[in-house]
Design a protein around this nucleic acid. Structure first.
Lengths: 251, 251
DNA sequence: GAATAACGTTCGTATTTACGAACGTTATTC
DNA sequence: GAATAACGTTCGTAAATACGAACGTTATTC
């Protein structure tokens, strides 16, 4: 929904959120000029917003470098979410267990406006890693997490909420929504969702859907194709279903 | 600093932050009317702000209950802080170790506008617990964490930044800033800051200052007075200095 | 079940914010 | 070291938000 005057939403609010988003995507902070470029607003406008945010400690300002970054109080907001959602940190414990068990990268995601939003990742100890980033999104139709979550939706919702035609990725991905429906049927039957190099060449993923605190999550393991065989697949599936059982039991 | 027109800061921004703060202090969400009462703004004003926040997933809206709560993306902001600050989660590992070692509640705090802001807590397994809350603040002059952090400041900053006269608490607390200065001198000498039932009757606290990622933290253990003796004190001080050594080494 | 109260929502105007243009100050360039 | 560029800051007016008052709808009260 949105304001009557401004169909896109409340401008000041959108700017505050954009500033948060920009700051969260940086490593060592941003200057006001950089924030203006990213947010796409004139400095005279962001000036007072930024100062108000810094005054309140939701954003911290380093006087020596002149750079803004995420503040301590924002961290506390995240912890509040954790408390209310019944402990997302329990996911991280489970994910570390998965990585310890199968030695590959484990990721957690949800669906956000029809795309997979990556929430958390525990990296494989091996050298070859994935490039996905926390806070970034990918299409749902060609990712294991996306298909895992969609398998718990009814067909009608999938058809109406998924953007079609599908975004093009590697050529291994399904092209038509009817093909996706058949895949989702298979996920419902066997409990695992697969991404056979559909999002990125050379990357195989397996995911399970997990319901916790009234929300649907997807938990996945990604394996480079060259070390993906039946044995690896069995190991991953075992680790994932253990994690799912543990997480859904506690909640 | 603040806008020329509005000496208190940018109003819309303050409201967005107040909404976040209100939502983070609740367990099962708030209705729009409740938020209006807490924030102190008319519903016609918060209407569009709240809808914009909910649209962006920084706030989530439960259609069945009509309640707003902290959203998933806000959790990601907190994780971004964690990444930038060099891992606040390393504090939590250390705190769990402290609790395992001495069996009492461990807390982490920083100074925020001259008061102690509690960031994190790991509870004692025992039945009698503290009532302090994450995200809440207490005066610095009568808390162990406050004195631990202030001991790393120079005298001039303490005198100018600490609100004086001191807020009244239990009667065991220092009343004059010169007395506090003598206590801080003692903290610098022995490395530990004490709160001998100064904040709350029956609660003894010991804290150490910890510098990490360019920021000063205070790590404390709180013990009910009836089980606080020399042996307990030695155990707590041992656990705290171990934690400090571990945390400052890694950074 | 009528009356009251409380909620979320919409409207129009008073008030605040937005932002181009200008400023002084500090890096960068040549 | 003069000239240029980029930064953060301030100003005045154009444009957006703010909010009392109204609306219809759903709980609560009697």
């Amino acid at each position: 929904m949105s304001s009557r005057y401004n169909p896109a939403g409340h401008r000041s609010t959108l700017r505050v959120l954009s500033i948060f988003e920009a700051l969260s995507a940086t490593k060592s902070g941003l200057t006001m000029a950089e924030i203006c470029r990213i947010v796409g607003a004139p400095k005279s406008s962001l000036f007072s917003i930024l100062h108000t945010m810094a005054d309140s400690d939701y954003v911290s300002y380093d006087e020596t470098t002149g750079r803004y970054s995420i503040g301590l109080k924002t961290y506390l907001l995240g912890k509040a979410f954790d408390r209310e959602s019944g402990g997302l940190s329990s996911f991280e414990t489970a994910m570390r267990k998965v990585v310890a068990s199968c030695g590959e990268t484990c990721q957690l995601g949800v669906l956000d406006h029809g795309r997979v939003l990556y929430i958390s990742r525990v990296d494989s100890p091996q050298h070859i890693r994935l490039s996905s980033e926390i806070g970034k999104t990918l299409p749902a139709h060609c990712t294991a997490i996306g298909k895992a979550i969609l398998s718990r939706w009814d067909e009608e919702s999938v058809r109406s909420l998924l953007p079609f035609p599908f975004e093009k990725t590697t050529g291994h991905a399904v092209k038509h929504i009817d093909d996706l429906m058949r895949q989702l049927e298979e996920v419902r039957r066997c409990g695992f969702a697969y991404d056979h190099q559909e999002m990125a060449e050379g990357v195989e993923c397996i995911a399970v859907p997990i319901e916790k605190g009234g929300r649907l999550y997807g938990l996945s393991v990604s394996v480079p194709a060259y070390r993906f065989d039946t044995e690896a697949q069995n190991g991953v599936e075992h680790a994932l279903s253990d994690a799912r059982d543990q997480l859904e039991r506690v909640s």
